[in-house]
Structures are given as structure tokens and as C-alpha cells.
């Protein structure tokens, strides 16, 4: 089997000379899981670059390695081999606590199931990343501004079960934004919403990109969602599928 040479490798050389502002720079990522005796190759030498301010969607059938790529880019997991630079910082070799720190400062997560803390007010939910960042000064104020930015300035003290699905996802967006991350990783952000509020959430995410230049990566299997992003990356068998 001839080794697969990533087509971006020369582009990457060129990128340095072009001084592109890269948020994500992943080279030759592999990820191998052991399922009992069987080794599962979830990523097979995948390389990817994401520029600051880009809007990108990652698509792919289940089992394609899409989730593994998301977890790796989101610093939730380490690749088995390969290099990953996030804002120029090498992440692939970091220990658990360093990864936690990178997630806290540089990655804003948005989940399909919102993942808000029950019995905790919207404000406290949004404050959570600030707490883990050990930022005590006007934490409440920063969180309040983030909630106002997503149009929930009047719902600060509401608990998640007192909010609609769309509102809950907006709280999650505020939480993702509150630490000014390098990029937002949204995993099926509209998957649990009706089409109207799903559309609202998509528009809000795209607007954040337009107005604030927030880098956005959306993992989805919905082509309608993917169509609305400028760049679509399709994963198949742990590699980026040729267009």
C-alpha cells in the first residue's frame, strides 16, 4: 500500500510564506482505538487547516471519523500520532490539565443536547467557563453581557427547564463565547430543535461570524446546514474525501 501523501503539505509550506492567520493547523492526524482485539482506525493521516474567521462545516456518515476529528480538534482527546497546532500551540503532546486549560481558553463548545447544568440559572451556566479560568473579577458582568449578546438579557435567572430549546441553545452559545475562544465547535447545534428555532440558531452563529469574526466549525450530517457555510469538509474513512 502506497502511503497517502496529504495534498495540503505543499500548501502548508506556502502558507508560512503567505502569512495566513491559521487557527487550526493539523497534519497527518491518526487515531487508533482498541476495541478488544480489534484496532479501529478512526483517523488515517488527516490534515486540515482552518483560518481565522472561517466558517466551516464537517460532514460525513456515521463511523467516518467525524466525531473523532471533532474531539481531537476540540482538544477533548489526543491524536495517536500527527501534529496539531492550535493558535500555533502544539496540542498533541499536552497532558490532561494543559488540555483542560486549552479547552477553557481557546475552544467554545456547542452541543446537540445543549448540555446546560440543570437547576442552575442561565447566568451561572454562562459563568462556568470563567470560573474554571479562575477569573473572579466581574464574572457576573461578563456573563450578563454574553447573554445579552444572544438576546437573553431578560432571562438571566431562568433555569434551563424554564427556557425553550432555542433559548437553551442560545445560553449555550453565550457560554461558548464568554471566554473569547479561538474557535467555536458546534456539534449538530440544530439537531434537537424544530426548524424555526434551528434556523434562528444558525442565523445567530453566522451573524456572530459576520459581526465579530468568530471562527466557526459546525459538525453536521444535514446538507441544508452545510450549504450555509462557505467551506464544507467531508470525512470518509478517516480522511478528507476528495471533492
Amino acid at each position: 500500500m502506497t502511503p497517502w501523501i496529504p495534498p495540503t503539505i505543499n500548501l502548508w509550506e506556502a502558507s508560512i510564506s503567505a502569512k495566513k492567520d491559521l487557527v487550526i493547523e493539523a497534519r497527518n492526524l491518526t487515531k487508533v482505538y482498541k476495541m478488544g482485539e480489534v484496532e479501529v482506525h478512526a483517523l488515517r493521516g488527516l490534515s486540515l487547516e482552518v483560518q481565522r474567521g472561517e466558517v466551516m462545516s464537517i460532514m460525513g456518515p456515521s463511523g467516518s471519523g467525524k466525531s473523532t476529528l471533532m474531539n481531537t480538534l476540540g482538544c477533548l482527546d489526543r491524536p495517536t500520532s500527527g501534529e496539531y497546532y492550535l493558535d500555533g500551540e502544539s496540542v498533541a503532546e499536552m497532558n490532561d490539565d494543559q488540555l483542560a486549560d486549552v479547552r477553557n481558553r481557546k475552544v467554545g463548545f456547542i452541543f446537540q443536547t445543549f448540555n446546560l447544568l440543570k437547576r442552575t440559572s442561565a447566568l451561572a451556566n454562562v459563568e462556568l467557563p470563567l470560573r474554571y479560568a479562575n477569573r473572579s473579577e466581574n464574572r457576573g458582568e461578563i456573563a450578563r453581557q454574553a447573554l445579552e449578546a444572544v438576546g437573553l438579557g431578560d432571562r438571566l435567572d431562568h433555569k434551563p427547564n424554564e427556557l425553550s430549546g432555542g433559548q437553551q441553545q442560545r445560553v449555550a452559545i453565550a457560554r461558548a463565547l464568554v471566554n473569547n475562544p479561538s474557535f467555536i465547535m458546534a456539534d449538530e447545534p440544530t439537531g434537537n430543535l424544530d426548524s424555526k428555532s434551528g434556523d434562528e440558531i444558525m442565523r445567530m452563529l453566522l451573524a456572530l461570524n459576520e459581526e465579530r469574526g468568530v471562527t466557526l466549525i459546525i459538525v453536521t450530517h444535514d446538507p441544508e446546514i452545510a450549504k450555509r457555510t462557505r467551506r464544507v469538509v467531508t470525512i470518509r474513512d478517516g480522511q478528507i474525501a476528495e471533492k
Binding site: D96, D97, A100, R103, N104, F109, N115, Y132, A133
Partner: peptide, 16 residues
């Protein structure tokens, strides 16, 4: 477990 996962995703360290 999910709550712990979420907290970790948001930057909670082992110690936290």
C-alpha cells in the same frame, strides 16, 4: 457523568 464531561469540556481540571 455527563455533567462531569461537560465541566471538563469547559475547562475543569482533574483537581476541580
Amino acid at each position: 457523568t455527563r455533567e462531569i464531561g461537560l465541566r471538563k469540556a469547559l475547562g475543569a481540571r482533574k483537581r476541580d
